[in-house]
Amino acid sequence: MSEEMVLSVFRGDQTGGREEEFHVPLETGMVVLDALHYIQAEHAPDLAVRWNCKAAHCGSCSAEINGRPKLLCKTRLDQYEGQVVHVRPMHAFPLIKDLVTDVSSNYRAAKQIPAFSPRTPAPFTMYQRDVDRVQEFHQCIECFLCQDTCHVLRDHNARDRYFGPRMMAKIAEWEMHPMDTQDRREFLKDVAGLPMCNVTRCCVEVCPEHIVITDNAIIPLKERVADLYWDPIRAIFRRFQRSSTSSQPSSTVTS
Protein backbone atom coordinates (compact mmCIF):
# COMPACT_ATOMS: atom_id res chain seq x y z
CA MET A 1 0.00 0.00 0.00
CA SER A 2 1.43 3.33 -0.92
CA GLU A 3 -1.46 5.48 0.18
CA GLU A 4 -0.79 8.46 2.33
CA MET A 5 -2.66 9.61 5.40
CA VAL A 6 -2.93 13.14 6.69
CA LEU A 7 -2.61 13.53 10.45
CA SER A 8 -3.43 16.79 12.12
CA VAL A 9 -1.64 16.64 15.46
CA PHE A 10 -1.98 19.12 18.28
CA ARG A 11 1.30 20.86 19.15
CA GLY A 12 1.53 23.20 22.08
CA ASP A 13 1.53 23.61 25.83
CA GLN A 14 -0.22 25.58 28.59
CA THR A 15 0.50 28.82 26.79
CA GLY A 16 -1.38 27.74 23.69
CA GLY A 17 -1.01 25.70 20.56
CA ARG A 18 -2.52 24.57 17.29
CA GLU A 19 -2.83 21.52 15.08
CA GLU A 20 -0.06 20.79 12.62
CA GLU A 21 -0.52 18.61 9.55
CA PHE A 22 1.78 15.73 8.68
CA HIS A 23 1.74 13.31 5.75
CA VAL A 24 2.40 9.71 6.65
CA PRO A 25 2.64 6.70 4.31
CA LEU A 26 0.04 4.09 5.23
CA GLU A 27 1.22 0.53 5.96
CA THR A 28 -0.89 -2.55 6.48
CA GLY A 29 -2.35 -2.71 9.97
CA MET A 30 -0.83 0.63 10.97
CA VAL A 31 -2.12 2.25 14.15
CA VAL A 32 -2.15 5.96 14.99
CA LEU A 33 0.86 5.54 17.31
CA ASP A 34 2.91 4.09 14.41
CA ALA A 35 2.11 7.23 12.46
CA LEU A 36 3.19 9.43 15.36
CA HIS A 37 6.47 7.53 15.62
CA TYR A 38 7.01 8.09 11.92
CA ILE A 39 6.40 11.81 12.46
CA GLN A 40 8.87 11.86 15.37
CA ALA A 41 11.57 10.12 13.36
CA GLU A 42 11.13 12.14 10.17
CA HIS A 43 9.52 15.49 10.90
CA ALA A 44 9.17 16.49 14.54
CA PRO A 45 11.65 14.78 16.89
CA ASP A 46 10.34 16.73 19.87
CA LEU A 47 6.68 15.73 19.38
CA ALA A 48 5.64 14.70 22.87
CA VAL A 49 3.56 11.56 23.17
CA ARG A 50 3.38 9.18 26.11
CA TRP A 51 3.52 5.48 25.26
CA ASN A 52 5.05 2.32 26.66
CA CYS A 53 4.04 -1.11 25.45
CA LYS A 54 2.28 -0.41 22.16
CA ALA A 55 0.14 -3.46 22.85
CA ALA A 56 -2.85 -2.00 24.70
CA HIS A 57 -1.57 -3.46 27.99
CA CYS A 58 -0.16 -0.44 29.78
CA GLY A 59 -2.67 2.32 29.06
CA SER A 60 -0.14 5.11 28.52
CA CYS A 61 -1.06 6.36 25.06
CA SER A 62 -4.52 7.77 25.70
CA ALA A 63 -5.55 10.67 23.48
CA GLU A 64 -8.50 11.91 21.46
CA ILE A 65 -8.73 10.84 17.86
CA ASN A 66 -11.28 12.73 15.81
CA GLY A 67 -12.89 13.79 19.04
CA ARG A 68 -13.19 10.31 20.58
CA PRO A 69 -11.07 9.24 23.56
CA LYS A 70 -9.00 6.28 22.37
CA LEU A 71 -5.72 4.41 22.80
CA LEU A 72 -3.28 5.51 20.09
CA CYS A 73 -1.79 2.01 19.90
CA LYS A 74 -5.09 0.27 19.36
CA THR A 75 -6.69 2.62 16.85
CA ARG A 76 -6.14 1.47 13.31
CA LEU A 77 -5.53 4.15 10.70
CA ASP A 78 -7.29 2.31 7.89
CA GLN A 79 -10.67 3.09 9.42
CA TYR A 80 -10.08 6.76 8.68
CA GLU A 81 -9.13 6.38 5.02
CA GLY A 82 -10.11 9.50 3.13
CA GLN A 83 -10.30 11.62 6.24
CA VAL A 84 -7.90 13.85 8.07
CA VAL A 85 -7.05 12.20 11.39
CA HIS A 86 -7.13 14.75 14.17
CA VAL A 87 -5.08 13.77 17.20
CA ARG A 88 -5.45 15.85 20.34
CA PRO A 89 -4.49 15.35 24.00
CA MET A 90 -7.05 14.26 26.61
CA HIS A 91 -9.32 17.17 27.31
CA ALA A 92 -10.09 16.44 30.96
CA PHE A 93 -6.49 16.75 32.19
CA PRO A 94 -4.14 19.75 32.33
CA LEU A 95 -1.90 19.87 29.27
CA ILE A 96 1.85 19.38 29.64
CA LYS A 97 2.96 19.38 26.03
CA ASP A 98 1.53 18.24 22.69
CA LEU A 99 -0.28 14.97 23.43
CA VAL A 100 0.97 14.59 27.00
CA THR A 101 -1.27 15.57 29.89
CA ASP A 102 -0.87 15.72 33.64
CA VAL A 103 -2.76 12.72 35.02
CA SER A 104 -1.33 12.95 38.54
CA SER A 105 -4.75 13.76 40.04
CA ASN A 106 -5.64 10.11 39.53
CA TYR A 107 -2.72 8.95 41.63
CA ARG A 108 -3.60 11.43 44.36
CA ALA A 109 -7.15 10.11 44.45
CA ALA A 110 -5.95 6.50 44.48
CA LYS A 111 -3.82 7.17 47.54
CA GLN A 112 -6.89 8.18 49.54
CA ILE A 113 -8.85 4.98 48.99
CA PRO A 114 -8.91 2.81 52.13
CA ALA A 115 -6.77 -0.18 51.19
CA PHE A 116 -7.82 -3.79 50.94
CA SER A 117 -7.83 -5.35 54.41
CA PRO A 118 -8.47 -9.06 54.42
CA ARG A 119 -10.07 -11.09 57.21
CA THR A 120 -7.00 -13.32 57.43
CA PRO A 121 -3.68 -13.47 55.59
CA ALA A 122 -3.56 -15.63 52.44
CA PRO A 123 -3.98 -18.40 51.38
CA PHE A 124 -7.65 -17.64 50.91
CA THR A 125 -10.29 -20.15 50.02
CA MET A 126 -12.26 -18.30 47.38
CA TYR A 127 -14.22 -19.82 44.53
CA GLN A 128 -14.04 -18.72 40.94
CA ARG A 129 -17.69 -17.72 40.88
CA ASP A 130 -17.09 -15.40 43.78
CA VAL A 131 -14.09 -13.70 42.21
CA ASP A 132 -15.46 -13.44 38.66
CA ARG A 133 -17.09 -10.19 39.57
CA VAL A 134 -13.98 -8.48 40.92
CA GLN A 135 -11.72 -9.92 38.25
CA GLU A 136 -13.58 -7.79 35.72
CA PHE A 137 -12.22 -4.70 37.44
CA HIS A 138 -8.73 -6.20 37.55
CA GLN A 139 -8.69 -5.92 33.77
CA CYS A 140 -8.29 -2.15 34.08
CA ILE A 141 -5.14 -0.81 32.39
CA GLU A 142 -5.46 2.64 33.96
CA CYS A 143 -5.52 4.47 30.64
CA PHE A 144 -7.86 7.01 32.25
CA LEU A 145 -9.97 7.29 29.11
CA CYS A 146 -13.03 6.87 31.35
CA GLN A 147 -11.82 9.77 33.46
CA ASP A 148 -11.34 11.76 30.26
CA THR A 149 -14.81 11.15 28.92
CA CYS A 150 -16.59 11.50 32.27
CA HIS A 151 -18.39 14.82 32.02
CA VAL A 152 -18.04 15.46 35.75
CA LEU A 153 -14.28 15.68 35.34
CA ARG A 154 -14.25 16.84 31.75
CA ASP A 155 -16.74 19.69 31.76
CA HIS A 156 -17.21 20.54 35.41
CA ASN A 157 -13.58 20.20 36.40
CA ALA A 158 -14.76 18.55 39.61
CA ARG A 159 -11.69 16.43 40.30
CA ASP A 160 -11.79 17.52 43.94
CA ARG A 161 -15.42 16.42 44.29
CA TYR A 162 -15.44 13.17 42.30
CA PHE A 163 -12.71 10.52 41.95
CA GLY A 164 -14.05 9.40 38.57
CA PRO A 165 -15.03 6.05 37.03
CA ARG A 166 -11.57 4.46 37.24
CA MET A 167 -11.44 4.96 40.99
CA MET A 168 -15.02 3.74 41.39
CA ALA A 169 -13.97 0.51 39.67
CA LYS A 170 -10.96 0.28 41.97
CA ILE A 171 -13.10 0.81 45.05
CA ALA A 172 -15.60 -1.76 43.80
CA GLU A 173 -12.72 -4.20 43.29
CA TRP A 174 -11.83 -4.01 46.97
CA GLU A 175 -15.31 -3.47 48.33
CA MET A 176 -16.63 -6.61 46.57
CA HIS A 177 -13.59 -8.75 47.36
CA PRO A 178 -14.90 -11.79 49.26
CA MET A 179 -12.21 -11.45 51.93
CA ASP A 180 -12.34 -7.70 52.44
CA THR A 181 -13.49 -6.32 55.78
CA GLN A 182 -13.30 -2.61 55.12
CA ASP A 183 -16.53 -0.60 54.78
CA ARG A 184 -15.99 2.20 52.26
CA ARG A 185 -19.58 3.44 51.98
CA GLU A 186 -19.15 6.59 54.01
CA PHE A 187 -15.94 7.30 52.12
CA LEU A 188 -17.76 6.78 48.83
CA LYS A 189 -20.49 9.23 49.74
CA ASP A 190 -18.45 11.92 51.45
CA VAL A 191 -14.96 11.78 49.97
CA ALA A 192 -14.92 9.91 46.68
CA GLY A 193 -18.01 11.73 45.43
CA LEU A 194 -20.01 8.76 44.20
CA PRO A 195 -23.26 10.82 44.16
CA MET A 196 -21.70 13.11 41.55
CA CYS A 197 -22.08 10.38 38.96
CA ASN A 198 -25.36 10.59 37.08
CA VAL A 199 -24.98 7.20 35.41
CA THR A 200 -24.78 8.46 31.83
CA ARG A 201 -22.46 5.58 30.94
CA CYS A 202 -19.92 7.35 28.75
CA CYS A 203 -17.15 5.58 30.68
CA VAL A 204 -18.49 2.21 29.54
CA GLU A 205 -18.40 3.33 25.92
CA VAL A 206 -14.70 4.23 25.91
CA CYS A 207 -13.24 1.44 28.04
CA PRO A 208 -10.68 -0.45 25.90
CA GLU A 209 -10.96 -3.41 28.28
CA HIS A 210 -14.75 -3.46 27.94
CA ILE A 211 -15.32 -3.14 31.67
CA VAL A 212 -18.96 -2.31 32.31
CA ILE A 213 -18.02 0.32 34.89
CA THR A 214 -21.44 1.91 35.35
CA ASP A 215 -23.59 -1.19 35.72
CA ASN A 216 -21.11 -3.45 37.48
CA ALA A 217 -19.20 -1.02 39.69
CA ILE A 218 -20.88 2.35 40.09
CA ILE A 219 -24.54 1.30 40.33
CA PRO A 220 -23.87 -1.57 42.77
CA LEU A 221 -21.83 0.86 44.87
CA LYS A 222 -24.67 3.41 44.74
CA GLU A 223 -27.02 0.66 45.93
CA ARG A 224 -24.66 -0.19 48.79
CA VAL A 225 -24.50 3.45 49.81
CA ALA A 226 -28.31 3.58 49.59
CA ASP A 227 -28.43 0.55 51.94
CA LEU A 228 -26.74 2.68 54.55
CA TYR A 229 -28.22 6.12 53.99
CA TRP A 230 -31.47 5.78 52.06
CA ASP A 231 -33.14 2.70 53.43
CA PRO A 232 -35.07 3.34 56.67
CA ILE A 233 -36.27 -0.26 56.88
CA ARG A 234 -32.74 -1.57 56.75
CA ALA A 235 -31.63 1.04 59.27
CA ILE A 236 -34.21 -0.22 61.77
CA PHE A 237 -33.23 -3.78 61.01
CA ARG A 238 -29.56 -2.94 61.55
CA ARG A 239 -30.28 -1.30 64.89
CA PHE A 240 -32.29 -4.32 65.97
CA GLN A 241 -29.52 -6.66 64.91
CA ARG A 242 -26.86 -4.66 66.69
CA SER A 243 -28.69 -4.65 70.00
CA SER A 244 -29.54 -8.35 69.85
CA THR A 245 -26.05 -9.60 69.02
CA SER A 246 -23.38 -7.83 70.93
CA SER A 247 -20.65 -10.25 69.92
CA GLN A 248 -21.10 -9.48 66.19
CA PRO A 249 -17.71 -9.01 64.54
CA SER A 250 -17.14 -5.37 63.74
CA SER A 251 -17.75 -4.47 60.12
CA THR A 252 -14.54 -2.51 59.86
CA VAL A 253 -11.15 -3.78 60.76
CA THR A 254 -8.32 -1.44 61.38
CA SER A 255 -5.05 -2.68 60.05
Binding site: T149, V152, Y162
Partner: peptide, 18 residues
Protein backbone atom coordinates in the same frame (compact mmCIF):
# COMPACT_ATOMS: atom_id res chain seq x y z
CA UNK B 1 -25.21 16.34 31.35
CA UNK B 2 -23.78 15.33 28.91
CA UNK B 3 -25.80 15.41 25.68
CA UNK B 4 -23.29 13.02 24.13
CA UNK B 5 -20.02 11.52 25.31
CA UNK B 6 -16.87 13.62 25.10
CA UNK B 7 -18.74 16.62 23.70
CA UNK B 8 -19.11 19.98 25.42
CA UNK B 9 -22.06 20.55 27.74
CA UNK B 10 -23.55 23.55 29.56
CA UNK B 11 -21.32 24.40 32.52
CA UNK B 12 -23.08 27.48 33.81
CA UNK B 13 -24.69 26.26 37.01
CA UNK B 14 -22.66 24.33 39.55
CA UNK B 15 -23.15 20.68 38.74
CA UNK B 16 -24.01 18.52 41.74
CA UNK B 17 -24.94 15.27 40.04
CA UNK B 18 -27.18 13.14 42.22
Amino acid sequence: HPSACASPEPTGRRYTGE
